[in-house]
């Protein structure tokens, strides 16, 4: 689904989706649902070397190159964190490294989860984003 959209469109899509919720509970329930729908990470990729540093819960993030696009898989032991990483995967998955590196991250503010998703150490959102960009950078210098 996301592959037919540009990265910016995928971001806007999420912003529109979250705009439907007026209540914190609905927003979080949706976020938790997104986490539940996140495709399973392969067991061999759920390893310590794929842990994202700087999160209070454990987050695994794996990246590989498929057809010149960065393919992300992820998991977390906390449901909200898993929802957050699912949001990021939905936006950044299967994109060219350059597109990932050039993308703005302001959709996080616009998603209406801003005060909760503001980059802080506890939820590690910025750590996850940084990690995705580091992978993209590594692949862009290889290609």
């Amino acid at each position: 689904m996301t592959t037919t959209m540009t990265l910016a469109q995928a971001q806007q899509d999420l912003v529109d989706e979250f705009a439907m919720f007026t209540d914190w509970q609905d927003r979080y329930e949706h976020l938790i649902e997104l986490g539940k729908d996140l495709p399973l990470i392969a067991p061999e990729n759920k390893v310590d070397t794929n842990l994202v540093r700087g999160c209070q819960s454990r987050v695994w993030l794996n990246a590989e190159m498929k057809n010149d696009l960065v393919h992300f898989t992820a998991d977390s032991d906390a449901m909200i964190t898993k929802g957050i990483v699912a949001l990021l995967v939905r936006v950044y998955n299967d994109r060219a490294p350059q597109e990932i590196l050039g993308a703005s991250t302001d959709f996080i503010d616009r998603i209406g989860l801003r005060e909760h998703l503001s980059p802080n150490r506890a939820n590690g959102l910025s750590a996850m984003l940084d990690q995705m960009k580091r992978y993209a950078l590594a692949y862009s210098s290889k290609s």
Binding site: W24, Q25, Y28, Q56, S57, D77, A78, M79, I80, T81, H116, A122, N123
Partner: peptide, 20 residues
Amino acid sequence: VHHYDLGTLLDQQGIAVRTG
């Protein structure tokens, strides 16, 4: 239930606890 999730959802309700 992960303590991080619980702390986050309590915060949404105005309740400040420590997790970790």
